[in-house]
Design a protein around this nucleic acid. Structure first.
Length: 571
RNA sequence: CGGGGCGUGGCGCAGCCUGGUAGCGCGCCUGCUUCGGGAGCAGGAGGUCGUAGGUUCAAAUCCUAUCGCCCCGACCA
């Protein structure tokens, strides 16, 4: 491709609307342009990258035996009513009516459609297992789209669905997809981690997120350096402290704490550390009030509470509910004298002579001890994991990372196939619902994640596998016809051997071209100059390195081809 | 949804408080010079100041409404 024939508008200045680096560079490099909040057009360069990602995903999905389909973006409400999500899915689901007034939505995901498709065609266990996937534009009316492609409303996603006759088969499909995802993200050149994740509203018992490690990531994860257990902080299991009888000796004392509601206020007022205070949080667990105790410097985690208490629904109690249970306004709850179940985080087991709320306005109790001043129904792991916390598997200290979620695999079971009556006949002649799994990859998010992980102050440094072009040929002296001719010929020859090459044939000064080259981040740069040609040489430089080397012009094509191949992860 | 900010040539911004002829940098066009890290000089094109209404002799500027966009938080298969 010749630069002068391409649509590749770069910009020198940072766009006003962008904050995160990938957003800035995508805009500046002429990869995308914003059309509306969370809605983008892809320009030629950006679209080439998207297609690179798609191809890797396709190849690996096909290799795993999955088959590609294409489902509609617009979906009738009736299908969603079957699964019950028409009313359950919040305002994120963009709903609208057609000319006849019938309700439709823009698909944020495709479980309903795929089940609608499959239940009519897959009738026998002999046809199973099946894994279907598609690469599709999805629309989720996000409350707050942000950071360019990282959290857009319209985005491209690969979604896959597996159908098995039983749990064992479904787990096998899940494992196969898990392995496939590892291959995909490795080929994309990512430093990433599969992490155990919350199943969220989707339910099911097994779920992993694939997190690209980047400081700008939205998700917090912890990883154990000893046993490599890795999980989202919302889920990471922590080693407990065995509860033992209190050795506290202090006397329980009521102290006045006027208007001191928060941990900071109380500890500041009393002059003690937050780790000397026990927070008493009132949760409604399946509509029953429960007290959760956590150390003052830690955070309670609803997902873990739900899990620990085997509950269906957990929410913070409303103000009136707190008053009813503790007979004190919010901010003064404490375990002493409570009649509701009390569950304490395992860290509380190791505490003595601590501070709690007095269940009375403007008062706290100091010198409290569990077992002596109140009883704890159980010690559980209900706090948010943090770096330094002990790993639940081996006890070593967790390391903390920030991650960008680029993929997510779920074991679904019969959660959708059941209600939607998607069944097949098993060998014994019984109709059974498919045991399903679903597997998503954020294609367009991968594009920005790749930049977050691979850039410097000058611009993008594409991994070879995702680069819009593999090679950039840059003639330095435009007025030197020999240079132009050699660069043109090199371009043609590289193209002829199947290398994706961009020739910067613009009549611009060298510095201008070099800066654009660094911005758009094509991994291999070939500089053709008067000086070099005198020695029958061209210069080769990797975008990620600051060392250039001269190679003989005659060997340039084979040398470049070799470099490109070497930089492509196995396929 | 709560909090904050911004809409002025293609891009980035000033002007608004204190109403009076719309300005700067980049980019774009023409010419000459220049040519290995975002060149110089000269000339030039391009703007209903987000939209609607109001106040005023006069509105980018003041008032009201409305639309859009960004950031923080809450939210999130």
């Amino acid at each position: 491709m010749r630069y002068t024939q391409s649509y590749l508008p770069t910009r020198k200045e940072d766009p006003a609307d962008a904050e995160v680096i990938s957003h800035k560079l995508l805009l500046r490099g002429g990869f995308i342009r914003q059309v509306g909040a969370g809605i983008y057009s892809f320009l030629p360069l950006g679209w080439r990258v998207v297609r690179k990602v798609e191809q890797i995903v396709r190849q690996e999905m096909d290799r795993a035996g999955a088959q590609e389909v294409m489902l509609p973006a617009v979906q009738p409400a009736s299908l969603w009513e079957e699964s019950g999500r028409w009313t359950k899915y919040g305002p994120e689901l963009l709903r609208f009516n057609d000319r006849k007034g019938n309700p439709y939505c823009l698909g944020p995901t495709h479980e309903e459609v795929i089940i609608g498709l499959v239940r009519d065609e897959l009738r026998s266990y002999k046809q199973l297992p099946v894994i279907l996937y598609q690469i599709q534009v999805k629309f989720r009316d996000e409350v707050r789209p942000r950071a360019g492609l990282m959290r857009a409303r319209e985005f491209t996603m690969k979604d896959a669905y597996s159908f098995d006759r039983d749990e064992a088969g479904a787990i096998e499909s899940y494992r196969r997809m898990f392995d496939t995802y590892n291959r995909i993200f490795a080929r994309c050149g990512f430093t990433f981690r599969p992490v155990e994740a919350d199943t969220g509203s989707i339910g099911g018992s097994m779920s992993h997120e694939f997190q690209v490690l980047a400081d700008t990531g939205e998700d917090a994860i912890v990883s154990c350096p000893a046993c490599s257990y890795t999980a989202n902080v919302e889920l990471a299991q922590l080693a407990g402290v065995p509860p033992r009888p209190t050795s506290g000796t202090a006397e329980r004392t009521r102290v006045e704490t006027p208007r001191m509601r928060t941990v900071e206020q109380v500890t500041g007022f009393l002059g003690v550390g937050a780790d000397r205070l026990v927070k008493t949080l009132i949760y409604m667990v399946d509509e029953q009030p429960v007290a959760i105790l956590v150390r003052g410097d830690t955070e309670a985690n609803e997902i873990k509470i739900k899990r620990a208490l085997d509950a269906v629904e957990v929410r913070m109690a409303e103000e009136e509910e707190v008053i009813k249970v503790t007979s004190a306004p919010v901010g003064f709850a404490g375990p002493v004298g409570l009649t509701i179940p009390i569950h304490a985080d395992s860290l509380v087991a190791a505490m003595t002579d601590f501070v709690v709320g007095a269940n009375e306005e403007d008062a706290h109790l100091t010198g409290c001890n569990w077992g002596r001043d109140f009883q704890v129904d159980s010690f559980v792991d209900v706090r948010m994991a943090r770096p330094g916390d002990p790993c639940g598997r081996c006890g070593a200290a967790f390391e903390g990372y920030k991650g960008i979620e680029v993929g997510h695999v779920f074991y679904l079971g019969t959660r959708y196939s059941g209600p939607m009556k998607a069944t097949f006949l098993d060998a014994d002649g019984e109709a059974r619902p498919f045991v399903m799994g679903c597997y998503g990859i954020g294609i367009t998010r991968i594009v920005s994640a790749a930049i977050e992980q691979n850039h410097d102050e000058r611009g993008i440094i594409w991994p070879m596998a995702l680069a819009p072009y593999q090679v950039l040929v840059l003639p330095v002296q435009y007025q030197d016809e020999a240079v132009l001719a050699a660069a043109g010929q090199l371009h043609d020859e590289l193209e002829a051997v199947g290398i994706e090459v961009l020739l910067d044939d613009r009549d611009e000064r060298p510095g201008f071209k070099f800066n654009d080259a660094d911005l758009i981040g094509i991994p291999l740069r070939v500089t053709v100059s008067t000086r070099g040609l005198k020695a029958d040489q061209v210069e080769i430089k990797l975008r990620g390195s600051d060392q250039a080397e001269m190679v003989p012009l005659r060997q340039a094509v084979s040398e470049i081809g070799e470099r490109v191949r070497r930089m492509m992860p196995d396929r």
